[in-house]
Amino acid sequence: MSRDALIFYSEFDDPEAWKKTLTAELPDIDFHTDPDAVDPAIVHYALTWKPPAGFFGRFPNLKLVTNLGAGVDSLVGRDDLPDVPISRLSDTGMVSLMSSYVLFSVIRYARDIHIFERAQRRGEWKYIHPRALSDIRVGVLGLGELGGPAAQALVRTGFDVRGWSRSLKDIPGVRCSAGSDTLDDFLRDIEILVILLPLTPETRGLLDARRLALLPAGAKLINASRGAVVDEPALIDALQSGTIEEATLDVFTVEPLPRNHAFWSMKNVLITPHLASITVPEAAAREVAESIRRVRSGLPPLHGIDPRRGY
């Protein structure tokens, strides 16, 4: 009797780490990384991140596709995606990493660390009296499985936290609003904006020049979701003009960020290489295995998504 097989594809994740952790959870599954070295008919599961065009079409008996990450925008619009359940990763390790990145980025601005960094390079002792954290208005744009916990972490730290999402959420300590008709008012009152939205047709370019201009003078922007949620040329203009004072950017329209891109030379921009929240196999393998067990039992997987919506 043929065993179940899983095909793995990612140019960024370690296949050996995934094989070790996943087969420990599911010893009856065959783990493959080479599509040409396995009988396509026995491949029932795919664990992938941005596989090449046509990848899924060669496996006629897929029962589950799992995306190696929280964002599934790379799956939207593919013409080879099978009509099977699709899940994404959302393990506790990813949540902790994102929350820590958001806390670091917000606190860096709230405690004026960016100013002290520049003063140190000038050899200047520059004192700025700290503000109470409860007086600093932080807005989290997107309150999903990563944004919600990040907002809660900011509340626990003592910030005045507001949140915006597509549908209304109820998060203790967070002043929540929802829907496109409330977004402009939300932005007008935010000192530090944290973007944690998925990339969908509705969110692509959501923060255009008009909306960026709604942020108060001196606002800071942190984007740890997808670069295309923000109109990049408009953000460059806003940072150059001072409409937005500072930005911390982990994601970009084109990645890796091209060497000649304007962001590299901007002193008011901190760049990190898309690592705010990454998948740790040791933690995530348990969820992948549980989704496979559920599909085998006729149940939906964990963290199922609708690729037509983009989340």
Rank of each mutant, 00 (worst) to 15 (best):
T272H: 11
G158E: 12
D184C: 09
I244A: 06
L207E: 01
I136V: 12
P172N: 14
M98Y: 02
R166Q: 10
R296S: 04
S180N: 14
D231M: 08
P307A: 07
E290L: 05
P40E: 10
A46F: 08
W18R: 10
D112T: 10
G298A: 09
A213Y: 03
A262P: 07
E117W: 08
L154N: 03
L143T: 05
T200R: 02
D112L: 09
F55S: 04
V161H: 02
R88M: 02
G298P: 06
E145K: 12
K220L: 04
L212Y: 02
T48Y: 11
R78S: 02
G173F: 13
A153T: 11
G163T: 05
F104A: 04
A53K: 14
A150R: 02
S167L: 14
N61W: 05
L22F: 12
A276M: 07
A238W: 11
L89M: 01
S165P: 06
I195H: 01
G173Q: 12
T182M: 14
F263V: 10
T248Y: 06
V95H: 02
W125Y: 11
G218N: 03
V280C: 08
L97N: 02
E117H: 09
V72H: 00
L239Y: 06
A178F: 09
L206Q: 03
G93P: 01
